[in-house]
């Protein structure tokens, strides 16, 4: 990227905008099809067929869903806070999309005589930006539930707040060892540091903690307490309808893709892998994570609230702290070249 004092050349700007547009397109399309894939895979798990009527194999189902959501009434509860109510879905979806800006999704390519990193923004504090954005995403849940002025929504958003804050802690702590190993917050450096061996080999414990934490961050079963349809109707988005509900919904799936991509970046070597091109490796890993999430959703029951808090504060966070200490000790003993 060009420095702030230099006027960036138009070619560079064009390329960056093209990259942003492409990433947005791919992410939104993938998220829509992830909804479809989830419905099909859950159906198979339950010995059903799933949606297969719209188009061949039901492949046009996301389009039909989109038309349905767009033409539905956009309702705001009369007692609700209109502005916050309309703002909340965007606050849930936008940080999820923005997080993808820092994810390196392929090997750098040479195009028009310049090196183009397959990443929208290679920030030197990329990991911190991810943590910050995932903290902002909490506001979508909190405000959505608060502005609805409904007891179910409020309970859901209270649960969501407590859950997201608790698991963000263990998620952040489980990423510290990868930073210690890569000696950088920059995501491209973290990927480059895994050329010799993926961090999952050195940090299986951190990977396990991160996996459980991102499951909770996505508010997925078995951590879907903020939504908990059996108890809270639909939790924090009970009062939402139409495309605003759709934004919450698609934001959740974008979150799955982004967090899957980050898990791949931090622990599974990002876009690196033998034989196949980097793009395929990266998206393959992301989709594998998405499948894992769907598979877990089809398998596990929801945790009780006290179990959720117990797991977060008394198991994952201490484990992550011990893991950091162990990694530090190991790095101290191994000297300057740990890998």
């Amino acid at each position: 990227m060009a420095g702030a004092d230099v006027i960036p050349d138009p070619m560079e700007i064009t390329l960056v905008i093209a990259k942003i547009g492409l990433v947005l397109l791919v992410i939104l399309t993938l998220a829509a099809y992830l909804v479809f894939a989830e419905r099909r895979i859950l159906a198979w798990i339950q010995d059903r067929k799933g949606p297969n009527r719209v188009g061949p194999f039901g492949l046009l189902q996301p389009l039909a869903d989109l038309i349905k959501l767009l033409t539905k009434e956009d309702f705001c509860p009369p007692a609700g806070d209109r502005w916050l109510f309309f703002l909340a879905p965007a606050m849930a979806a936008i940080p999820a999309i923005m997080t993808f800006a820092i994810v390196p999704f392929g090997a750098p390519v040479r195009i028009f005589g310049r090196d183009l990193p397959m990443q929208v923004a290679d920030l030197h504090v990329g990991l911190l930006l991810f943590m910050a954005l995932s903290s902002i995403a909490v506001y979508g849940v909190a405000l959505g539930g608060w502005a609805s002025n409904s007891k179910y929504a409020l309970l859901g958003s209270l649960r969501g707040l407590a859950q997201l804050i608790s698991y963000e802690l263990s998620m952040g702590l489980s990423l510290v060892p990868t930073v210690m190993l890569a000696r950088s917050f920059r995501l491209s450096d973290i990927v480059a540091a895994q050329e010799g061996g993926w961090f999952i080999l050195y940090q299986p414990m951190a990977f396990a903690i991160f996996l459980v934490s991102i499951l909770a961050e996505c508010k997925r079963i078995p951590f879907d307490l903020p939504e908990a349809e059996g108890e809270l109707v639909a939790g924090f988005h009970t009062e939402y309808s139409g495309m605003r509900f759709g934004l919450f919904f698609v934001g959740e799936y974008i979150n799955i893709l982004v967090l899957g991509g980050l898990a791949a970046t931090f622990f599974l070597g990002g876009w690196q892998g033998p034989l196949l091109p980097g793009l395929l490796w990266f998206w393959g890993k992301v989709l594998a994570f998405a499948f894992l999430f769907i598979w877990i959703r089809g398998t596990l029951p929801r945790l009780r609230y006290d179990q959720l808090m117990h797991l977060g504060w008394k198991v994952l966070t201490p484990m992550a702290l011990v893991n950091i200490l162990a990694t530090a000790w190991w790095l101290y003993l191994a000297g300057s070249s740990p890998l």
Binding site: I41, W44, D47, R48, W295, G298
Partner: peptide, 10 residues
């Protein structure tokens, strides 16, 4: 659940 993914739907 993996076994059920591979099973024929009813």
């Amino acid at each position: 659940t993996w076994k059920h993914i591979l099973r024929r739907p009813v």
